[in-house]
């Protein structure tokens, strides 16, 4: 196995393009675990952490570009990013433990393509866009289009995610991520909901995006559920409707972590609770 630590995006792309079995390495909290469990045996590993621009969080048109090697601890220490996208940061903050968060990245979480990835639903709800680098240059793709199924991504040979752009937040916006796990920490989501919404001047919900995790082969964009909310004040009736729509949008399976029925119910409960938190945050914006 060949291990390399390139210092530029181009070099990394070339190394990855040269070997179809090569894998990019960000925090390694998925990759190294699978390597040691002998589930994978890549011929080469290309570490992204030595590429300076991938280690930065930079402002871009009022939004934030997060480099692919930025660990989630760094995101949660970034006050401006946290106040713009609290839901995205709290998703990143739920990954593993303090030790894991010193390493793990949201790009790795996304590209690992696990259906239960905690940072992904709120990135999707936020309308985040991934910048993909490859042997022929870069291209942009909405984050929800990157995972295509468990363990599978839309990345072509030699491509990797260089950064993720979170757009400028709307006025009176709130975002939130909630997951359900049997344990409080160090657990994998049985269901997860990311939500981003904004209010108009009159306190009605103007925009909303909702994404569901762990209840389908990949993250689910629950457009109908979002539509139910738009135009309401987020009152109990609207939240109940949201809850039902979220359950209806889910396509869960039964496995060792929960039955399909349980997941469908819980995703509805979480949607309602996450929307309440996002609403409170949106109102806090106006105040």
């Amino acid at each position: 196995m060949i291990f390399s630590s390139p210092e530029t995006i181009e070099e990394a792309a070339a190394l990855l393009a040269a070997d179809a079995e090569a894998r990019p390495l960000a925090g390694g909290t998925d990759l190294l675990v699978r390597l040691r469990a002998r589930q994978i045996a890549p011929s080469a590993i290309v570490d992204l952490k030595r590429i300076p621009e991938l280690r930065e969080i930079t402002e871009e048109s009022g939004g934030w570009r997060i480099g692919a090697a930025v660990p989630s601890a760094q995101m949660n220490e970034h006050a401006a990013l946290k106040s713009a996208w609290p839901g995205v940061c709290e998703g990143a903050d739920l990954i593993g433990s303090t030790q894991i968060q010193g390493r793990c990245t949201v790009a790795g979480n996304l590209c690992n393509a696990g259906p239960a990835a905690d940072s992904v639903p709120c990135l999707v709800a936020a309308g985040a866009v991934a910048r993909i680098a490859g042997p022929t240059g870069t291209r942009d793709l909405p984050v929800e289009d990157i995972p295509t199924g468990p363990g599978k991504t839309a990345l072509k040979p030699g491509e990797f995610v260089a950064s993720i752009l979170l757009p400028a937040p709307a006025a009176r916006q709130g975002s939130a991520y909630l997951r359900f796990t049997p344990r409080t920490e160090m657990d994998i989501a049985v269901a997860g909901v990311g939500i981003a919404l904004s209010l108009d001047g009159a306190g009605k919900i103007e925009t909303a995006r909702i994404a569901l995790g762990a209840v389908g082969p990949k993250v689910i964009v629950a457009d109908e559920a979002a539509q139910t909310l738009i135009g309401t004040t987020g009152d109990d009736a609207a939240l109940d409707a949201l809850s039902q729509d979220a359950s209806a949008a889910a396509t869960p399976i039964s496995d060792k972590r929960g039955t399909a029925e349980f997941r469908r119910e819980v995703i509805g409960v979480l949607a309602k609770r996450a929307a309440k938190i996002a609403l409170t945050r949106a109102k806090g914006d106006t105040a």
Binding site: P182, R183, T184, E185, M186, D187, I188, K256, R257
Partner: peptide, 16 residues
């Protein structure tokens, strides 16, 4: 055995 690891064999963690 489907859960031969601490991820899916859930002993309580401190915060539980």
């Amino acid at each position: 055995l489907l859960n031969a690891g601490f991820l899916d064999y859930r002993i309580p963690v401190a915060s539980d």
